[in-house]
């Protein structure tokens, strides 16, 4: 069998989507058989099969044992996956990512205040209590810090926001770790007070306050990151550090092409 060329594949995949949509199908609905799709689109079944496999890989379709192939349900991750691929294929740099993350966390705090359930609050309370007693256990504090942010994102009950935050955090993993590593444990532990205030706003269902407190917390985080980036820039003097960019509003710098550095650091 010859390799179908790229354009054909993309075109067929898009035609399949258009056909499903024009049949009025939405998330969670069962799709017609390969044979029907092939007839409708006037292409070979093998070509349709390839396209369906690709769309499954994107998470857009799922096959269920004995009942056929479905458009993935409204709780599935395909929308986030599509947005993530957009991020992979788009321009990005650390400064923009840090800023994007801050804004997404701020939205998560607001939505959490507006939508949290009793279980969400129990979970978040548990995390704050654990933070209060973790004293100078650095790995534990780091873990709890992440747990708090994840818990807030869940409490936002926005599937899209939760996954966006996850992708952006993945991209910033190395930097976030550096910032946390540069902080004295006492300071890390002190953050539970700050987090506790955010939680209080969430409990009080005060979206404005939760948003304001998170914005303030993120601003401090951005300053720490700026300091970390500056320290990294002055201690490493290879050719990559000669193109520096000022982080907005902080006066610190970053490499214009942080990507290769991230890659090495993640190994």
């Amino acid at each position: 069998m010859t390799e179908p060329n790229l354009t054909t594949g993309v075109t067929v995949a898009r035609k399949v989507l258009a056909l499903l949509a024009s049949n009025g199908l939405r998330e969670g609905d069962r799709i017609p058989s390969e044979r029907v799709l092939a007839t409708e689109l006037r292409v070979k079944r093998s070509v349709v099969r390839e396209a369906l496999r690709s769309l499954m890989l994107l998470g857009l379709l799922e096959s269920r044992a004995g009942s056929g192939t479905f458009v993935a349900g409204a709780d599935s991750e395909w929308v986030s996956t599509a947005i993530e691929w957009g991020l992979v294929l788009g321009v990005r740099n650390t400064v923009d990512l840090v800023e994007a993350r801050s804004q997404l966390e701020v939205l998560a705090a607001r939505l959490a205040a507006e939508r949290r359930t009793a279980e969400d609050l129990d979970e978040l309370r548990g995390i704050i209590e654990a933070m209060a007693v973790a004293s100078d256990d650095r790995p534990r504090l780091t873990e709890l810090d992440l747990a708090f942010h994840l818990g807030l994102a869940r409490a936002s009950h926005s599937n899209v926001l939760m996954h966006l935050l996850d992708s952006v955090r993945t991209l910033l993993k190395v930097w976030i770790a550096r910032v946390l590593a540069s902080k004295p444990a006492a300071e890390l532990q002190g953050e539970y007070v700050e987090h506790g205030q955010i939680l209080d706003a969430v409990i009080a269902a005060d979206g404005d306050l939760a948003e304001r407190l998170m914005r303030e917390a993120m601003r401090k985080g951005q300053q720490s990151l700026a300091a970390t980036l500056q320290a990294a820039a002055s201690s490493e003097t290879d050719e990559r550090t000669d193109r520096l960019l000022v982080i907005r509003g902080t006066g610190a710098t970053e490499r214009l092409r942080p990507a290769p550095v991230l890659h090495e650091a993640s190994r």
């Binding site: 993309v10 995949a13 898009r14 258009a18 499903l20």
Partner: peptide, 19 residues
């Protein structure tokens, strides 16, 4: 890429549109 195709949007449920 298909991941950015506007065709995807026609398959969205109302809940997802709201989100």
């Amino acid at each position: 890429p298909v991941a950015k195709a506007s065709e995807l949007g026609r398959l969205l449920s109302a809940r997802r549109v709201a989100d």
